[in-house]
Design a protein around this nucleic acid. Structure first.
Lengths: 151, 151
DNA sequence: GAGATTTATATTGTACACAATATAGTTTTG
DNA sequence: CAAAACTATATTGTGTACAATATAAATCTC
């Protein structure tokens, strides 16, 4: 088994690098699709959450996307500067910043509707294939996160 | 089909987000494993390439990892500041910056050997399961990259 | 072999990503 | 109700990530 030690360290052989490279490939694919909407990919993710339902707090968005405030606060400020969202402190609990869509932000949803289909098409998989791989990755992420404590 | 339009836009249903979340989960898993080595995850990827074979140019590393010079130059300067690599201009072609390992950088490989096993274990998959998912992701990345021109 | 093209790297600017810390507001407890 | 504990967000600092541009060296073309 000695002689198989070295190749295991090659990036191309590792699952983590395959995930990393697939993420880069998605980023390259999304960039030209989102550029006409004036959104980056993480901004698009935040808009997806807002299109699902608002108002929602910064923490609420962070829980859906797995992002912390250090990432979301400047991201949401840029979306606010672009006129897509509003950030207002909650009256009941003044620690909360509640994010709502503007009319322009709501209208952008229509222009984004064609994106998931274009991406699914680019993946070269049918719906079942996309769903199967998606669920495998969800299970992987869950396994990685739950094992953290065991190390 | 009208009423299925909206849910398609939920981040949790999309393959791209599953890849994104799995990448975040890997980053969380690797951070405590790499912290004793003084490496970040992208720095670890660069070291993997160097451990496979050096000297290698900045462009050579970038081709293996899919990273451009704007990312690699500061990353490699940090590895140089940490005493793990050396950056020297090639004598034959003075445009090239050739990266080599120092003794400390080479020695670090031994301490990194246990990491792939720990990560594979954390994934909760056997070797065949890891290989199968890795190859599916490679195929996905290839499909996404080749479709770019077709849009 | 001088000029145009190409190639390799560096630099600049914008935008994540997250740990650590700070701050302010809320809730809990005695 | 006052002190302690907790919660939500913001701030700071470090480190990617990449587009666009700059620079310098090598190569190609006539």
């Amino acid at each position: 088994m000695k002689e198989t030690d070295a190749p295991i360290l090659a990036p191309e052989q590792q699952l983590c690098f395959a995930v990393y490279a697939a993420g880069q490939a998605f980023a390259r694919l999304y960039r030209p699709l989102l550029e006409p909407l004036g959104l980056t990919y993480p901004q698009y993710l935040a808009m997806l959450v807002l299109w699902e339902g608002e108002p929602i707090s910064v923490t609420g968005i962070g829980q859906r996307l797995g992002l912390d405030t250090g990432t979301l606060t400047p991201l949401l400020k840029r979306l606010e500067a672009a006129g897509l969202v509003r950030r207002t402190r909650s009256a009941e609990d003044e620690r909360r910043v509640v994010v709502t869509l503007t009319d322009r932000g709501r209208a952008l949803k229509e222009r984004a509707r064609t994106i998931p289909d274009a991406v699914a098409c680019a993946s070269g998989r049918d719906i079942d294939g996309v769903v199967a791989l998606r669920d495998e990755l969800k299970a992987l992420a869950r396994a990685l996160d739950t094992s953290e404590s065991a190390l």
